[in-house]
Computed example of a mutant assay.
Amino acid sequence: MSDGDATGEGRVTGVAGRTVLLAGGTSEAGRVAAQVLTAAGAHVIIAARDEVALGTLRETLPGIRTQRCDLTDETAVHDLGERVGALDGVLHLVGGWRGGGGLTGQTEGDFRALETSLTALRHVSRAFDPTLRDSDAARTAIVSSTAVTRPLAGGANYAAVKAAAEAWNRAVAHGFAKHARDAGEPLRAAAVTYRVKALAGREFALADAFARLWDDDAAAVNDTVVTLG
C-alpha cells in the first residue's frame, strides 16, 4: 500500500476489536487515524469540543463514535472517562503552533495557548490510566516534534511545551511498567512518543505506526521515541 492510501485495510490485525480514543481528533490527523483504525477493525471514539467538526466526522466516517468534551477541563475529562468506560488505546492529537519573532517574540499568550495541549494530555492520561491498566493490551501515544532535540529561538515556546509533554509521557510509561512489576505480571501497556518535523503530509504514517503498536510486545515499545520522516 502506498503511503497515501489512508484505508489501512489488510495491514493491521492486532488492533482489531480494540477500543481507541482519539483525543482532539477533529484534525486531518484524526480523520486519517480514524479511517486507518476503523479499517483495521478497531472501535474508534473521537473526543473534542467542536460539535460542528464532530458532526462532520460522524457523517463522513460511518461507525465512529464521538464525545463532545473540553479536554482542558479536568472535570469534563473525568466525566468523559465515566462515559467511555473500557478502553485499549489513546492517541493524543491536541496541538497547534505559535512561534516566530526570535526569543523576544515568544509571548506569554502564545505559551499559554500552546500549553493547552500539555494540559489536555495530563487530564486524559490521568483519567484513563486505570482502565488502560485493566486492558490486556493498552497502547497510548503522543505527537511531539523534532524541535525538542534542537529548539530554535523562534520556537522556544513550542519546543518547551513539547519537551514537557515528552517528559509526562515517559512518566506514563514508567507508571505502566511499575504497575506490571508490582503486580508480578507481564507488561501489557505501552506509551510511545512520535516525533515529526511537521505533521502535515505525515498523517498516514502516524496513523499506521500507531495502529501497528498492537502487533508488538508492550515491553518492546514502552517508553520509546519514534521519529516519523
Score class of each variant (00 low, 15 high):
Asp110Ala: 15
Arg181Asn: 08
Ala190Met: 02
Ala180Cys: 12
Val36Ser: 03
Val32Leu: 08
Ala163Cys: 14
His43Trp: 06
Asp70His: 09
Arg58Pro: 01
Glu51Gln: 07
Leu132Trp: 11
Ala177Met: 09
Ala141Asn: 06
Ala173Lys: 01
Val20Met: 14
Gly201Thr: 14
Asp215Pro: 00
Ala189Arg: 01
Gly89Pro: 00
Gly25Ser: 12
Val124Gln: 01
Trp214Met: 06
Trp97Leu: 14
Phe128His: 10
Ala48Tyr: 05
Arg68Asp: 04
Ser2Cys: 07
Ser135Asn: 09
Glu59Gly: 09
Gly99Ile: 04
Leu228Pro: 02
Gly155Ala: 13
Arg181Thr: 08
Thr116Glu: 14
Gly175Gln: 13
Arg65Val: 12
Arg195His: 13
Thr193Gly: 02
Trp97Ala: 12
Leu37Phe: 04
Glu59Arg: 09
Trp214Asp: 03
Gly101Lys: 06
Pro151Phe: 13
Val20Ile: 15
Leu54Gln: 03
Arg139Ile: 06
Ala53Ser: 12
Ala156Trp: 03
Arg188Lys: 14
Arg133Gly: 03
Arg122Trp: 02
Arg122Gln: 12
Ser135Pro: 02
Gly100Met: 11
Phe204Asn: 12
Ala200Leu: 12
Thr26Trp: 06
Asp136Gln: 11
Arg49Tyr: 15
Val143Ala: 09
Arg170Ser: 07
Gln35Glu: 10
Arg18His: 09
Leu21Asp: 01
Arg170Ile: 02
His43Asn: 10
Asp73Met: 05
Gly24Lys: 06
Ala167Leu: 13
Trp97Phe: 11
Thr66Ile: 12
Arg83Lys: 10
Ala137Asp: 11
Arg150Tyr: 15
Thr19Gly: 07
Gly63Met: 08
Ala113Tyr: 04
Asp208Ala: 13
Asp3Glu: 10
Gly101Ile: 05
Ala127Asp: 04
Pro151Trp: 13
Val77Pro: 00
Leu121Arg: 00
Ala211Val: 13
Thr13Ser: 07
Arg202Val: 02
Asp88Leu: 10
Ala180Val: 12
Arg170Lys: 12
